[in-house]
């Protein structure tokens, strides 16, 4: 598509227009990231009054700390489960919404709503639902004989943050899956139907393979979300507990740094996380920009 080219009369105007966004990026992203990198090489004393350069000591300590590996394990389980749950459900919803003839827009709007809910609010919402004394979901689970208590059971706590985090991501995935489904020409479904494939067979042999570029893209996005964007969900519900059962990496960064006041160690964790985000971004651009081919 041809876009209209805008010509500015003054040289500085375009820069001025970009300034707010640049300022936000600089102040809230680039600067703190730089600070974190610098800080990861220092150790602060207990009163916060002196800094000491320690080289890679923070990293060495980090990688010899069993609780860090536990956190990685928790994060991986959480990220995989969240992505799997969010993607499966959203694909199901998209497949169903794609077939709806009447009230299409209403369904789509409702399915997109959760995306607008703040992560912390989503977390609190699910916490209330699963609260052992007042939560209706916990009550329902108790009726079928499942004792759900996120404050004492590690598995319950994990399930709670997975559900809360996945719920928020379903809307986003739904949009992409729906667009992906609509990009498949109708005649391909029809040809498959004439070729004797029923709806289920069509889904697995035609739809799913043709959606693979979307699926791969969403997998990366969901992993990034689950790894790095779910602090608020954890903070509002389980606070990493019970014990360290739901202390995912981003949560641990905050807890070690601002509760444990180990600023150097926390900064080192941030740097590791930054490297992971960078790697995932590379994967995303490398493989997704090229579009998965079929």
């Amino acid at each position: 598509m041809q876009t209209k080219r805008v010509t500015f009369r003054h040289v500085w105007l375009p820069y001025l227009l970009c300034l707010p966004q640049l300022a936000v990026t600089l102040i809230f992203f680039i600067w703190p990231a730089g600070e974190a990198i610098v800080e990861s090489f220092y150790q602060t004393n207990a009163f916060g009054t002196s800094l000491r350069f320690v080289g890679l000591a923070n990293f060495q300590r980090l990688f010899s700390d069993p609780s860090y590996y536990a956190s990685i394990r928790v994060s991986v389980i959480f990220a995989l489960a969240t992505s799997a749950l969010a993607m499966t459900l959203s694909l199901l919803f998209a497949a169903v919404a794609d077939r709806i003839v009447r009230g299409t827009n209403a369904y789509r709007t409702f399915l997109i709503w959760p995306y607008a809910v703040a992560p912390a609010v989503a977390g609190v919402l699910w916490m209330f639902l699963f609260n052992p004394s007042i939560g209706i979901a916990a009550y329902a689970l108790e009726m079928v004989g499942i004792d759900f208590n996120a404050t004492i059971s590690p598995n319950s706590a994990m399930a709670l943050i997975i559900v809360a985090a996945a719920w928020k991501q379903i809307s986003y995935n739904f949009l992409f899956f729906l667009a992906g489904l609509q990009a498949i020409p109708n005649s391909v479904y029809e040809a498959a139907a004439i070729d004797g494939a029923g709806p289920v067979k069509r889904f697995f042999t035609i739809v799913l393979p043709l959606l693979s570029p979307t699926t791969f893209f969403l997998l990366v996005v969901n992993m990034v979300y689950a790894f790095f964007d779910t602090f608020a969900v954890v903070h509002a519900t389980t606070q990493g507990g019970p014990g360290q059962a739901t202390s995912i990496l981003v949560y641990k960064v905050w807890k070690d740094g601002f509760v444990g006041l180990d600023l150097g160690g926390s900064a080192a964790q941030s740097v590791v996380l930054m490297a992971m985000v960078a790697a995932l971004t590379v994967i995303q651009f490398r493989y997704i920009e090229r579009r998965v081919e079929y």
């Binding site: 391909v188 029809e190 004439i194 043709l210």
Partner: peptide, 20 residues
């Protein structure tokens, strides 16, 4: 009957081949 049960084959304008 479902299209698959009618013992017919169809050639579409846009070919409708399975791209993958």
């Amino acid at each position: 009957l479902e299209p698959g049960e009618r013992d017919i084959a169809m050639v579409f304008q846009n070919y409708a081949l399975y791209p993958h």
